[in-house]
Write a protein that binds this DNA or RNA. Structure first.
Length: 203
DNA sequence: CGTTCGATGCACT
DNA sequence: GTGCATCGAACGT
């Protein structure tokens, strides 16, 4: 297949540009259980120590170190004790910033996603989920894709977990809104989402 | 419809 | 000990 994996140079740019350009791209995770992929429809930017909502707001710590590292790597952490959230590290190395992947439209491995959603985690559902909800919300996305703490610092420019150039038709129409679920830094409109996508998480 | 709230791990103070 | 970049069940209206 053609090598459509986004190169490191894609991530080593201003975070808002990376966020915008990730919309419509394809997130792919290949495991022994199978291949899952989906179109990215919602992201959020977290930019630098001056951003109060960014994990780097208090400077370098053991947890947020990946934010300061190479662009194009994954920053995965646990929040609320039960959800893994995945980010793509951006900007040149040394600048702590990333794009949070919040929602995707399932493309490949939908049965596998559904199985992961139903069997993984403490909040498993008994009934079968609508396809559009499988990767709706950052916690749901990581569960459907089988992304866990083991993926922290993983290079997104290699094999396994990566983002591909979608090559799908025209550019989707997007909107910029305040970020969701945070208590500080709500003024910045750094959430980018596809307008009218059923797979975008709402408020 | 709407809002509230418990689950749950761990980094940080 | 505190506070989350969440989710969905369980309520109330």
């Amino acid at each position: 297949m053609a090598d459509r994996v986004l190169p490191r140079g894609f991530y080593a740019r201003p975070t808002l540009q990376v966020a915008r350009d990730l919309i419509g791209k394809t997130l792919v995770h290949v495991t022994t259980s199978g291949r899952t992929s989906g179109l990215i429809v919602e992201v959020e930017a977290y930019i630098g120590e001056g951003d109060p909502a960014c994990h780097a707001a208090s400077g370098l710590t053991g947890r947020n170190a990946p934010l300061y590292g190479r662009p194009g790597r994954a920053y995965v952490y646990v929040n609320y004790g039960i959800h893994h959230l995945v980010n793509a590290v951006t900007e040149p190395e040394g600048v702590p910033a990333a794009v949070l992947l919040r929602a995707a439209e399932p493309v490949e491995g939908i049965d596998l996603m559904r199985r992961r959603r139903q069997t993984n985690g403490r909040l498993a559902r008994a009934s079968s989920l609508p396809e559009k909800d499988l990767c709706r919300g950052p916690g749901n996305l990581t569960r459907a894709f089988g992304i866990s703490g083991a993926h922290n610092r993983l290079d997104l420019c290699g094999a396994g977990l990566f983002v591909e150039d979608g090559g799908v038709g025209g550019e989707p129409k997007v909107e910029w809104t305040p970020r969701v679920g945070i208590r500080v830094g709500i003024a910045a409109r750094w959430r980018c989402a596809v307008v009218d996508s059923a797979c975008v998480s709402g408020r």
